[in-house]
Computed example of a mutant assay.
Amino acid sequence: MKISVLKHAKGRITAIVKIAFLVISVIALSIQDLWAADGNAGISEATNQVKGYFDTGTNLMYAIGAVSGLVGAIKVYKKWNDGEHDTGKMASAWFGSCIFLVVVATVLKSFFGI
Protein backbone atom coordinates (compact mmCIF):
# COMPACT_ATOMS: atom_id res chain seq x y z
CA MET A 1 0.00 0.00 0.00
CA LYS A 2 2.88 2.36 0.75
CA ILE A 3 4.25 1.89 -2.76
CA SER A 4 0.96 2.83 -4.46
CA VAL A 5 0.66 5.97 -2.30
CA LEU A 6 4.21 6.98 -3.24
CA LYS A 7 3.51 6.40 -6.93
CA HIS A 8 0.32 8.45 -6.68
CA ALA A 9 2.17 11.29 -4.89
CA LYS A 10 4.96 11.14 -7.45
CA GLY A 11 2.39 11.45 -10.26
CA ARG A 12 0.84 14.49 -8.59
CA ILE A 13 4.23 16.15 -8.13
CA THR A 14 5.06 15.49 -11.77
CA ALA A 15 1.74 17.04 -12.84
CA ILE A 16 2.32 20.08 -10.61
CA VAL A 17 5.82 20.53 -12.02
CA LYS A 18 4.48 20.32 -15.59
CA ILE A 19 1.76 22.88 -14.86
CA ALA A 20 4.28 25.20 -13.16
CA PHE A 21 6.62 24.91 -16.14
CA LEU A 22 3.74 25.72 -18.52
CA VAL A 23 2.72 28.78 -16.47
CA ILE A 24 6.30 30.05 -16.26
CA SER A 25 6.72 29.56 -20.02
CA VAL A 26 3.56 31.53 -20.80
CA ILE A 27 4.62 34.36 -18.48
CA ALA A 28 8.11 34.47 -20.01
CA LEU A 29 6.71 34.62 -23.56
CA SER A 30 4.26 37.40 -22.67
CA ILE A 31 7.04 39.44 -21.02
CA GLN A 32 9.21 38.92 -24.08
CA ASP A 33 6.42 40.33 -26.28
CA LEU A 34 6.17 43.38 -24.03
CA TRP A 35 9.92 43.95 -24.23
CA ALA A 36 9.82 43.61 -28.01
CA ALA A 37 7.04 46.21 -28.22
CA ASP A 38 9.10 48.64 -26.13
CA GLY A 39 12.12 48.02 -28.35
CA ASN A 40 10.14 48.77 -31.51
CA ALA A 41 8.77 51.95 -29.96
CA GLY A 42 12.28 52.99 -28.95
CA ILE A 43 13.65 52.40 -32.43
CA SER A 44 10.80 54.41 -33.96
CA GLU A 45 11.42 57.27 -31.52
CA ALA A 46 15.15 57.26 -32.31
CA THR A 47 14.38 57.36 -36.04
CA ASN A 48 12.09 60.36 -35.58
CA GLN A 49 14.71 62.20 -33.54
CA VAL A 50 17.42 61.57 -36.13
CA LYS A 51 15.11 62.84 -38.88
CA GLY A 52 14.52 65.96 -36.82
CA TYR A 53 18.25 66.70 -36.57
CA PHE A 54 19.04 65.86 -40.19
CA ASP A 55 18.32 69.32 -41.64
CA THR A 56 20.39 70.94 -38.90
CA GLY A 57 23.25 68.55 -39.63
CA THR A 58 23.24 69.28 -43.36
CA ASN A 59 23.17 73.03 -42.68
CA LEU A 60 26.11 72.53 -40.33
CA MET A 61 28.00 70.71 -43.10
CA TYR A 62 27.29 73.59 -45.49
CA ALA A 63 28.57 76.07 -42.88
CA ILE A 64 31.73 74.03 -42.28
CA GLY A 65 32.26 73.93 -46.05
CA ALA A 66 31.89 77.70 -46.28
CA VAL A 67 34.32 78.38 -43.43
CA SER A 68 36.76 75.85 -44.85
CA GLY A 69 36.51 77.56 -48.24
CA LEU A 70 37.27 80.98 -46.75
CA VAL A 71 40.25 79.68 -44.78
CA GLY A 72 41.55 77.84 -47.84
CA ALA A 73 41.12 80.90 -50.04
CA ILE A 74 43.13 83.03 -47.61
CA LYS A 75 45.91 80.42 -47.39
CA VAL A 76 46.06 80.01 -51.18
CA TYR A 77 46.11 83.79 -51.70
CA LYS A 78 48.98 84.12 -49.21
CA LYS A 79 51.00 81.38 -50.97
CA TRP A 80 50.27 82.95 -54.35
CA ASN A 81 51.47 86.35 -53.17
CA ASP A 82 54.63 84.81 -51.68
CA GLY A 83 55.39 83.27 -55.06
CA GLU A 84 55.47 79.64 -53.90
CA HIS A 85 55.32 76.98 -56.60
CA ASP A 86 52.83 74.57 -55.05
CA THR A 87 49.95 77.07 -55.01
CA GLY A 88 47.91 75.08 -57.55
CA LYS A 89 48.20 71.88 -55.56
CA MET A 90 47.10 73.58 -52.36
CA ALA A 91 44.21 75.36 -54.12
CA SER A 92 42.91 72.10 -55.57
CA ALA A 93 43.14 70.40 -52.15
CA TRP A 94 41.14 73.13 -50.37
CA PHE A 95 38.65 73.48 -53.21
CA GLY A 96 38.20 69.70 -53.36
CA SER A 97 37.49 69.46 -49.63
CA CYS A 98 34.84 72.18 -49.84
CA ILE A 99 33.17 70.53 -52.83
CA PHE A 100 33.27 67.19 -51.02
CA LEU A 101 31.42 68.59 -47.98
CA VAL A 102 28.74 70.21 -50.11
CA VAL A 103 28.26 67.13 -52.30
CA VAL A 104 28.07 64.78 -49.30
CA ALA A 105 25.45 66.95 -47.60
CA THR A 106 23.40 67.20 -50.81
CA VAL A 107 23.63 63.48 -51.62
CA LEU A 108 22.68 62.46 -48.08
CA LYS A 109 19.71 64.80 -48.17
CA SER A 110 18.48 63.41 -51.50
CA PHE A 111 19.34 59.79 -50.62
CA PHE A 112 17.30 59.72 -47.43
CA GLY A 113 14.52 61.81 -48.94
CA ILE A 114 14.26 64.16 -46.02
Rank of each mutant, 00 (worst) to 15 (best):
A105N: 06
K51T: 01
Y62M: 09
G11W: 00
V104N: 11
G65A: 11
K109R: 03
I27F: 06
V103C: 06
G69A: 08
Q32S: 08
G96L: 10
I24Y: 08
K78C: 07
S110Q: 01
A63D: 10
S92A: 09
D55F: 01
V17I: 09
E84N: 13
K10G: 08
I74T: 14
V26C: 13
D55N: 02
N81W: 06
L108P: 00
L22Y: 07
T56L: 09
Y53T: 00
F54L: 10
A63L: 13
S97A: 07
L29W: 12
A66W: 02
F21D: 14
W35T: 02
D38V: 00
T87H: 13
I64A: 15
D82K: 11
I43A: 13
Y53P: 00
F54I: 05
A37I: 05
N48T: 04
L101V: 04
K51Y: 03
I3T: 05
T58Y: 11
D55R: 00
V17F: 02
S44C: 01
V102T: 12
S25K: 04
K109H: 04
L29M: 11
D55H: 02
S97E: 09
Y62S: 11
H8K: 09
V50G: 05
A93V: 07
F112N: 03
I114Q: 03
N48A: 06
N48Y: 07
L34V: 12
Y53N: 04
A9K: 03
V102M: 12
V5I: 02
G57H: 06
V50A: 12
I74H: 13
V76P: 15
V5C: 07
A93R: 13
M90R: 05
V23D: 12
K75V: 11
T56F: 03
T47Q: 10
S25L: 06
V26H: 14
M90K: 05
C98A: 10
T56C: 04
Y62C: 01
F112W: 10
N81M: 08
A20C: 06
I27Q: 15
I99H: 03
G42Q: 02
I3R: 07
W80A: 15
V67L: 15
